[in-house]
C-alpha cells in the first residue's frame, strides 16, 4: 500500500490477528503484511480547493468570525469536505448551515454513527451528510462524544428528518440525542440489551443451541477479524 494515502503521522499500527484461526501472530503467511495502520486524524490546511473554501468562509462569517471555536478540525479527503464540530456548538452550526443564504444546506441526508473505540475521549461519532440544492454542494458534519458521556444535542428541531435517523443511531450506538422528542429504539426490539453496531458488540451475539451442541455466533466460528 502506498503511503501517500496516509498523510500525517499514523498512530500505532494494529495487528489484525487470527486469520484462519491462528491467534498467536498477526499474519499467517508473512506475505500480505496484515498489519494495518489506523486512520490518522487528519486536519487539512487551507486552501481546501473548489467550493470548500467558500463554505468555510461563509460559515466563519455566519458564526461571527471564529470558525476554529466551533469547528475543531476541517478535513478535505477524497473530494469531500468534513467539519468536525464541537458538540456544544453543533445546533448553532447546523442552523447557520441550513438558514444562511450563502450556505443553504436545506436537505439533510440523515445521521449515522461510527464507533472508534481507540480514539480516547471521542469514541462515538455522529455523522451528518448535508446537501445544498440551491448551490449544488455537499458537506459532512461530524460531532463526537466520549463513551463515558454519550450525549449529543438533538437536531430534530432543525432537520425534522433526523427523527428516525437519531433513533437509529441511538439504537445502534447508544448515543443519547438530548432533546429528541421520542428517543426510542427503532430497529431492535424495545427490550433489547446493548447497542449492536458498537465495536465491542459481537456479530451474531447470541450462541445458538442446536441438538445439544452450542453453535457460537458467526464471528467466533472462524476468526474473521
Amino acid at each position: 500500500m502506498s503511503t501517500d494515502n496516509l498523510p500525517g503521522v499514523p498512530e500505532e499500527p494494529i495487528a489484525r490477528l487470527g486469520m484462519f484461526g491462528a491467534q498467536d501472530s498477526g499474519d499467517t503467511s508473512g506475505y500480505g503484511g496484515l498489519v494495518v495502520r489506523r486512520a490518522p486524524r487528519l486536519s487539512t490546511p487551507r486552501p481546501y480547493g473548489g467550493y470548500f473554501d467558500t463554505v468555510a468562509d461563509e460559515l466563519e462569517r455566519a458564526l461571527g468570525g471564529d470558525l476554529a471555536d466551533a469547528v475543531e478540525r476541517v478535513v478535505v479527503d477524497r473530494g469531500e469536505l468534513t467539519f468536525h464540530v464541537k458538540r456544544e456548538r453543533l445546533l448553532e452550526v447546523l442552523r447557520h448551515l441550513r438558514d444562511d443564504p450563502a450556505l443553504r444546506f436545506e436537505l439533510s441526508l440523515g445521521v449515522s454513527g461510527v464507533h472508534y473505540p481507540h480514539l480516547e475521549g471521542e469514541e462515538l461519532h455522529a455523522v451528518y451528510h448535508l446537501c445544498s440544492i440551491t448551490h449544488n454542494r455537499r458537506l459532512r458534519v461530524e460531532a463526537a462524544c466520549p463513551d463515558t458521556d454519550r450525549h449529543i444535542p438533538s437536531s430534530v428541531s432543525i432537520y425534522p428528518t433526523h427523527d428516525w435517523h437519531e433513533r437509529e443511531t441511538w439504537d445502534f450506538f447508544g448515543i443519547v440525542f438530548d432533546g429528541h422528542p421520542a428517543l426510542t429504539r427503532i430497529m431492535m426490539p424495545d427490550d433489547w440489551d446493548g447497542h449492536p453496531q458498537r465495536k465491542d458488540y459481537p456479530l451474531g451475539g447470541i450462541p445458538v443451541d442446536y441438538r445439544g451442541a452450542e453453535i457460537p455466533p458467526p464471528d467466533q466460528r472462524r476468526s474473521y477479524k
Binding site: H115, V127, T161
Partner: peptide
Amino acid sequence: DGGTKPYRVHFRDPSFTNLQ
C-alpha cells in the same frame, strides 16, 4: 481503517427516510 474489511458501512436508504 486500512484493512481488508469495511470498518463501517451505512446506507442512507430513501425508503427509510421517505416513510417518515
